[in-house]
């Protein structure tokens, strides 16, 4: 196994941990943090492949991903604050309005 394989495996495990967090966390910010982990794992993947192929493409996309994630977190946290303001709680298990 080469260095790249190692990094890719690492990214996979990081992604899996992010998934675990996503499915487990009960408050909204916790979920957002897990999403961060997953995005980070993707970035690692991109950079690793950029190393393999040469060229800037992978890194450029990683930068794009970072920028997007930042924007997403910003809006997400704004929503969290709104949620906290209106419902006095950011527990996602409390928001059951879509209960069938």
């Amino acid at each position: 196994m080469s260095e790249i394989h190692f990094c890719l495996l690492l990214a996979a495990l990081l992604f899996a941990i992010g998934v675990f967090g996503l499915l487990t966390r009960r408050n909204a910010i916790g979920i957002l943090l897990s999403v961060e982990l997953m995005a980070n794992a993707v970035n690692i993947n991109l950079v690793a492949f950029s190393r393999v192929h040469g060229g800037a493409t992978g890194q450029v996309f990683a930068l794009f991903a970072i920028a997007l994630t930042v924007a997403e977190v910003a809006v997400g946290l704004a929503l969290v604050i709104l949620l906290a303001r209106t419902r006095k709680s950011i527990d996602v298990t409390q928001a059951r309005d879509m209960h069938g």
């Binding site: 998934v19 996503l22 499915l23 966390r25 979920i31 996602v92 298990t93 928001a95 059951r96 069938g100």
Partner: peptide
């Protein structure tokens, strides 16, 4: 009907 719990984490689980 019980699949539709209304809880976001459950829907995410289904997604995954």
């Amino acid at each position: 009907r019980r699949v539709q719990t209304g809880l976001a984490p459950d829907y995410v689980l289904a997604l995954f």
